[in-house]
């Protein structure tokens, strides 16, 4: 018995070391100045004070010299807009599909939700052509439109299933009293569905923030952050690795903070996303 426990413990310890290895690597690189990175031994780090000031310098260079500040703001705009926008559109549709008089509800639902099953590669070429023909290639409004649209199917799944848990009697009673569809949405449905809003927002903010490929295809000057990082990285990037990693750390902060603090909502949404129980 105890032998198996020791073996399991050893394997776990080994995996933990592997899992923390890249993070340790990032730490020792980002605490060095670009010059120290070229001259010092890789695993050596300067003193604590100097290391921290190097890290701050690297962050500063990544935001200004490498111009990531602009891309971070772009991504903040895109991710916030897509998160709120898709949650809003999906809340309207989810409410209608669950509580209003619509013919062929399931058909409508599938017509929207089916988008979730295509890999993104299916959308890239037409979306590039579409935005170009509208004159919206490489514009912020173009990015916001596409990101929001891509986020809607999953958002609808969350909102519709959430709406179905609300008792129909409430809505029927309100209707009897002469309440319009819009008033019911605004006064009854919206106040009740804040949990669904949070789940959708976390998911779609995170997805949009993390996106690389739409950013590569749909624009250049108003690129989101991950795309900008991918252009800095590599032999052509022209930025030292401490600066590249400092930029990566800054770019990670929003999702790390969101996913660590709101893990409960995230896992709930995840189960909804992948498994059969809400």
């Amino acid at each position: 018995m105890s032998v198996t426990k020791v073996i399991i413990g050893l394997i776990l310890a080994m995996l933990v070391i592997i899992w923390l290895f890249p993070l340790a690597t990032v730490l020792v690189v980002v605490l060095k100045s670009s010059h120290q990175y070229d001259t010092m031994f890789f695993w050596a780090i300067p003193g604590l004070g100097e290391g921290l000031s190097n890290a701050l310098n690297n962050i500063f260079s990544s935001l200004t010299r490498a111009k990531l500040g602009k891309n971070l703001l772009n991504s903040l705009l895109y991710a916030t807009s897509a998160g709120i926008g898709s949650a809003f559109l999906a809340s309207l549709a989810g409410y209608a599909l669950a509580h209003l008089n619509i013919r062929g509800r399931l058909g409508w639902f599938f017509a929207i939700f089916v988008g979730n099953f295509f890999p993104f590669q299916m959308f890239l070429i037409p979306l590039y052509l579409f935005l170009t023909s509208l004159g919206l290639y490489d514009t912020r409004i173009g990015f916001i439109m596409i990101y929001t649209g891509i986020c809607v199917p999953f958002a609808l799944l969350v909102f519709r299933n959430y709406a179905l848990t609300l008792s129909p009697e409430v809505f029927e009673a309100a209707k009897m009293d002469g309440c319009s569809d819009l008033r019911m949405y605004w006064n009854i449905f919206l106040p009740l569905s804040s949990a669904a809003f949070v789940v959708v927002f976390i998911f779609q903010f995170t997805w949009t923030w993390n996106d690389l490929i739409f950013g590569l295809v749909l624009g250049e000057r108003v690129r989101p952050i991950m795309t900008a990082l991918s252009k800095l990285q590599g032999y052509r990037g022209g930025v030292s690795q401490p600066v590249l990693l400092a930029g990566s750390i800054i770019a990670s902060l929003p999702t790390v903070v969101i996913l660590l603090t709101l893990q409960r909502f995230f896992v709930k949404g995840l189960i909804l996303h992948t498994a059969g129980r809400g």
Partner: peptide
């Protein structure tokens, strides 16, 4: 919601 998905996913 339908139009958003139509133009960003279904037609593409």
């Amino acid at each position: 919601a339908f139009l958003a998905v139509l133009f960003s996913e279904l037609l593409p």
